[in-house]
Design a protein around this nucleic acid. Structure first.
Lengths: 356, 356
DNA sequence: AAGATAAAATGAATCGATTCAATATGGCGA
DNA sequence: TCGCCATATTGAATCGATTCATTTTATCTT
């Protein structure tokens, strides 16, 4: 090497100069080679090799082109939620299939703090956003739309009619779960709910449930209560335990429930994950499912079919949800403000009539 | 609509003009508000609201700043591999924890076609890359380095000494698996290997194995053969079946193996996934594990502890691998060209001495 | 009230490419 | 040999922000 420039990485302009062509031509060599005479093309490539240029920097390209070729998926859970939570990964699996089919990448965005998430959403390099958060959804979707990005929330939450969202009918899902167990003859119920508000857990009163900030869990309880109440049960006596993502809060709830002289014979778990953790706890304690206790899950994740016993559950149309979410972003054709899917009861081995 | 400007989305410059300040000041309002007098700040915010400006476009920012705040993870498998394959998601879970701790996002990049992947790698908006592909790694890492991005391959492959890579000692892993089973007294072995070359499956000869393009599977076979050979077995009689990610090729191999008059009593599976699928097949066929047949997995994914019986396996230090991969990208301090980890035998319920 | 100092605001340069209207070149027919 | 057309090439404008050396304004001392 002779004397030396400070070795900054070379730009397209440098290549153009080195090859003795205009920058426009150099650009064409990399993006529309058919427009450039072969001889020139080779000269440019050679020059590029010489000065150590390895193709256009995507940042420049993207600024000009405006498209990133990736959709973002955002959540207020930690990032590993996408890989560790069975429901999240079932949805992500579908989303990623749809993205693959469209040649689009996926960006995972996360922040515990909702405010930070808002900033991250504002600065994510994506063509559209799937909001995978069950709190603060309204703010976040609004934020995304402000940015002019197509976006969908994966829960209605308390958003108004015009923010695009996909959800299942949670009240009806709650009804189906309760109906199934009531039909089997159960009368002693307990509910293992997902979070009503961020990061809290423990036994909840009806008033607290009504005040929930997360509508998903509240609605599922409402649905179940409605049915059980209609069957003549006093729902104020049905214990509802709020649980968070961790095993601990679930086991604690079970400890409490089964310390009772007359423990429940039917458990409505608001997610398959909760139900699966409960199944482990039952196995440990020697409580037989479904002989001693019946349990029903929610979501219909693939893993729920493989537990022992296999889990009866209220299934969401996960495949369809994933597809529609991506479609809403990649083909923002018609106005699709909100889609409400139905759930489906899948009866497997974890529910049966109570012992006589 | 009335007369009108074409309603392009407003830029920072427009806000500056509307608020009657310089563009520099407008920029500061959004990024270094403490440098701007409160009154001016408000004026700018107001102007922004009026013309419908919702914060700086990340594209412009990024071009200037040079950083994207996301690391890329690339693979030649379809995107859903990250969510569906137990090993991939175990690693991804660790990678994502590390990213979270650093406030970095994750971009998932994939293409079946290696050539396209190369293009995608060239145009991914990321600060660094983890190469999660077991073929063509050498080309791809080279490509990433050309771009000037920090990068790590998650397998040595046939890369040369100076491309950064993390891997486990596959030969030694293969040895450990064989040793464990041989020590139990097994003499009739079969190997269920992961792919030797892209997209192929079926029974393989020693010559074909030696010619494998994927070194991971080849090395594991070599390690196992070495031990078994030293114990006096004729390895040319040990059936080695190449399997691909799908259930079908694995079941087909098992069909063939157990159609034999003297089927193997010890199966070395080169991944926990393969072993788990085999476990299902055994359960279906009424073949008891470990009484009728022993099977050992590879990887040490969390799911392998929950199968029935729980899976004996050669565990990789998944946590450490994920951490180091991210560290290599986010803190490119010292020169860390390659790290070779050891595997660890974890004995669980799927292996036992053969029937007498 | 002048001077020194700190705080606030300016504006042009820069990041790295793509695009497109305008111009240059070459081949071909008459 | 001239003109015409198709094909190649040019060069300047553009994408949207951040940065930083300067200039302007405000605050404080004595």
């Amino acid at each position: 090497m002779a004397a030396g420039k400070p070795a900054k990485s070379p730009r397209l302009a440098d290549v153009a100069e080195a090859a003795g062509v205009s920058q426009g031509t150099a650009s064409n060599v990399f993006n529309h080679p058919e427009l450039v005479r072969e001889e020139v093309r080779e000269r440019v490539h050679e020059a590029a090799k010489n000065i150590g240029y390895s193709g256009p920097d995507p940042r420049g390209r993207m600024l000009r082109a405006g498209m990133v070729n990736a959709i973002g998926v955002a959540t207020t859970q930690p990032l590993n939620y996408f890989f560790d939570d069975p429901y999240a990964r079932a949805i992500m699996s579908e989303i990623s299939k749809a993205c693959d089919a469209n040649g689009s990448g996926i960006s995972l965005i996360s922040t515990k703090n909702e405010q930070l998430l808002s900033w991250n959403i504002g600065s994510a390099l994506v063509d559209g956003l799937v909001l995978f958060c069950f709190t603060g959804t309204e703010t976040l979707v609004a934020r995304a739309r402000e940015r002019g990005l197509p976006s969908v929330a994966l829960a209605f939450g308390n958003t108004n009619e015009d923010v695009p969202a996909i959800d299942v009918d949670n009240v009806e899902g709650g009804r189906k779960a309760a109906t199934h167990l009531a039909n089997l003859g159960h009368t002693r119920f307990a509910i293992l709910a997902i979070e009503f508000t961020d990061g809290s857990s423990g036994r909840r009163t009806a008033a607290e449930i009504a005040a929930a900030t997360h509508f998903t869990s509240r609605d599922r309880v409402f649905g179940s209560f409605e049915v059980l109440s209609a069957r003549g049960l006093d729902v104020s006596n049905i214990p509802v335990f709020e649980t968070s993502e961790d095993t601990g809060s679930i086991r604690l709830a079970l400890d409490t429930l089964f310390a009772d002289r007359a423990p429940p014979t039917a458990i409505i778990a608001q997610s398959d994950l909760i139900a699966m953790i409960a199944l482990d706890w039952f196995a440990e304690k020697g409580i037989r499912v479904p002989q001693d206790v019946s349990i029903i899950g929610f979501d219909g994740v693939p893993e729920a079919a493989e537990t022992s016993p296999p889990l009866t559950t209220i299934a969401q149309p996960i495949v369809e949800i994933g597809r529609r979410a991506v479609a809403a972003i990649l083909e923002p054709t018609g106005e699709m403000p909100r889609i409400l899917f139905d759930t489906e009861l899948i009866v497997r081995g974890s529910t049966a009539p109570p012992k006589a």
